[in-house]
């Protein structure tokens, strides 16, 4: 299995499209950092609004932790689209190139093949998030320094002590990884049915977009659906920035995401094992 996964990773990182996501994320992070460096105070004033006049907040509000939180807030909505590029291509791309039939005629099990492809897509996702974390947090801290983190919630501001922040980022990274692997699993499932990668990439993106819209709209009929939508749980990484953290709620969401991953990957394995490879 590990040999197969290594081969899959080798193929992923030999493709130029793989680096589109890294380049896009790198560009967005650097742009946000530059923007905050040049005009971050104005942004803070706008964000704080009346709070600034009612309270006096001391210390370096525009610090590295704050800028990284802002980056995460912006990026974690868009990263799923970039992940779909690779996960949606995993099987369908091979079918399109005609190499899927080469793989299936080798002495490896179809289950092993599909799981190694999913594992490789998941490792790619983790690497992308690690890149985002290192560039986002590392450069932000280097440029803006560290101080207490101020987090804006819908009806309040939460101030977290600078010594109480790093573990929250580590936990949020783990949760975000789970969320992104769920998106990868959706794209991967669609990839099994297609003979070119455009279809599954668009289908997976559409599912994420539609489910996100349903998650954000506060309409009673949609509210009934929300507990079952993975997109509703994907954003719960923010729960690690509550004080105190509602661990039960966060773990419940993580569990639901894991169940979604298991469901999507199991379906992918089931259908791939039965698939007639005609391409």
């Amino acid at each position: 299995m590990w040999t197969l996964t290594r081969i899959e990773l080798f193929k992923i990182f030999k493709k130029s499209r793989t680096y589109i996501a890294f380049a896009a994320i790198g560009a967005i992070i650097i742009l946000i950092q530059l923007a905050m460096y040049s005009d971050g105070e104005s942004y803070l004033e706008f964000m704080l609004g009346n709070i600034n006049t009612a309270f006096e907040i001391e210390g370096n509000k525009l610090n590295g932790y704050f800028v990284f939180y802002l980056i995460l807030h912006t990026l974690l909505v868009h990263v799923p689209l970039l992940i779909c590029l690779v996960a949606g291509d995993a099987v369908a791309g091979e079918a399109n190139m005609g190499t899927l039939r080469l793989l299936v005629t080798k002495p490896i099990s179809r289950t092993g093949l599909i799981l190694s492809k999913f594992l490789a897509s998941s490792i790619y996702t983790l690497l992308l998030l690690t890149f985002m974390a290192v560039l986002g947090l590392g450069v932000s801290v280097a440029l803006f320094g560290v101080s207490d983190l101020m987090v804006q919630k819908s009806d309040m501001f939460i101030l977290l002590d600078k010594t109480d922040v790093l573990w929250r980022y580590a936990a949020a990274y783990g949760f975000a990884a789970l969320s992104m692997i769920t998106v990868a699993a959706v794209a991967f499932l669609f990839s099994v049915f297609a003979d070119n990668s455009i279809g599954p990439i668009i289908a997976a993106m559409s599912v994420v977009i539609v489910a996100t819209i349903l998650t954000t709209m506060d309409i009673p009929i949609f509210n009934a659906l929300k507990p079952y939508l993975f997109t509703n749980h994907m954003l719960n990484w923010k729960g690690f920035f509550d004080n105190p953290v509602d661990l039960r709620e966060v773990l419940k969401s993580a569990g639901i995401l894991v169940l979604h991953i298991i469901l999507f990957v199991s379906l992918a394995v089931y259908f791939f094992r039965k698939k007639d490879v005609l391409s």
């Binding site: 080469l102 005629t105 080798k106």
Partner: peptide, 29 residues
């Protein structure tokens, strides 16, 4: 399949890899 080699229709290989990389992958598979 361990004792079988095949080309089905046209030999589709990984175009973005070299000949050596392609044959190396096929050997390991």
């Amino acid at each position: 399949l361990r004792q079988t080699g095949a080309i089905i229709e046209k030999p589709d290989l990984y175009k973005y890899l070299t000949a050596l990389e392609n044959i190396s992958i096929m050997a390991r598979l």
